[in-house]
Design a protein around this nucleic acid. Structure first.
Length: 295
DNA sequence: CGTCTTTGACCGGCGC
DNA sequence: GCGCCGGTCAAAGACG
């Protein structure tokens, strides 16, 4: 089929555009992106909520090693909720001269908006077009061992496309957030190497909080310490680039205690950054790369 | 009836 | 310039 050495991630041309070390991007907006999505890295929340640490980062390689994590329940049926264990995470931020403003939330994202509307827009100016061309959405991908393709992550997604992927027997599905103001998209595909692994790639940043789990899956999280229940208390997104980080941090600490929402997110980035715990201490540690922590 | 999925067509980027 | 491929659109159908 395809390169046995490289799962789909590397076959994706978009990934090849990662010319700079991931760590560099981690220092930048990607951290935001990461956090933005990290809350939802509870792909394993339902079945594996007691093992949030199964999340892994591989910052040295875009192709995370297929680390084995927890065993998987074989009950994907009812909801697409995650009978899954996240295997690893790769973050990419194919950035350009215009880094996405960290506070870009709803109507910001020029690229995203362009994809939706500019497609039919009456020929934008050349300059603009070039600018659009150069701007890449931060992407964030992770591999999840799961029976179901569409992992529940707290948001509602609408499938808008499916394509057969070259070098892969499995089709790739395209989803976009059902929130009309949100331009976040995600791409879901199975690893051709290991069909049990789902590769989910997020693009963009949510400009709203989780919608809950209307489709009945995770909302029923019986474990109060699960991610889901935490994120249900998410306040609206704030412009602060470190907001989610802090939230995540709180979450991480909260993993063994009660949830405390950040009181303030302004001006505390140094405090937050410096307060990041060692990797072995929890979820955040697993997620946030070293390069990001030592700032 | 509203929402979501399916699926073929279309478009743009990129490599050759 | 051409062809391939990824990504998106949009109509139609399915479903609750």
């Amino acid at each position: 089929m395809n390169d046995p050495e490289n799962p789909d991630l590397t076959n994706d041309s978009s990934w090849t555009q990662l010319t700079a070390p991931d760590s560099h991007f981690f220092h930048r907006d990607t951290s935001n992106i990461l956090s933005d999505f990290a809350w939802n890295l509870h792909a394993s929340s339902q079945s594996d909520h007691h093992h949030p640490h199964s999340l892994r980062f591989d910052t040295t390689s875009r192709v995370p090693s297929p680390v084995t994590t927890t065993t998987l329940p074989s009950t994907p049926s009812s909801s697409s909720s995650a009978a899954a264990a996240a295997l690893s995470v790769a973050v990419t931020d194919v950035s350009t001269s215009n880094n996405l403003p960290a506070n870009s939330s709803s109507s910001e994202n020029p690229t995203e908006n362009s994809t939706a509307s500019a497609a039919k827009a009456p020929e934008p100016p050349k300059e603009k077009k070039m600018a659009q061309k150069r701007i890449r959405q931060p992407r964030f991908a992770f591999m999840t061992k799961s029976d179901v393709d569409n992992l529940e992550d707290g948001y509602r997604w609408r499938k808008y496309g499916q394509k057969a992927v070259k070098n892969s027997p499995f089709p790739r599905s395209y989803y976009r957030c059902t929130n009309s103001r949100c331009t976040v998209k995600k791409r879901v595909e199975r690893s051709s190497e290991d069909p049990s692994i789902v590769i989910t790639t997020y693009k963009g940043q949510h400009c709203h909080q989780t919608t809950g789990f209307p489709r009945g899956g995770i909302l029923t999280a019986h474990d109060p310490s699960s991610f889901t229940s935490h994120f249900h208390h998410l306040p609206p997104p704030l412009p602060n680039p470190y907001y989610y980080q802090e939230l995540l941090h709180q979450l991480h600490r909260d993993d063994t205690s009660s949830l405390r929402l950040p009181q303030s997110t302004t001006e505390d980035e140094p405090a937050f950054v410096s307060s990041i715990n060692p990797p072995e201490e929890g979820l955040l540690g697993d997620i946030v790369p070293q390069t990001m922590r030592n700032t």
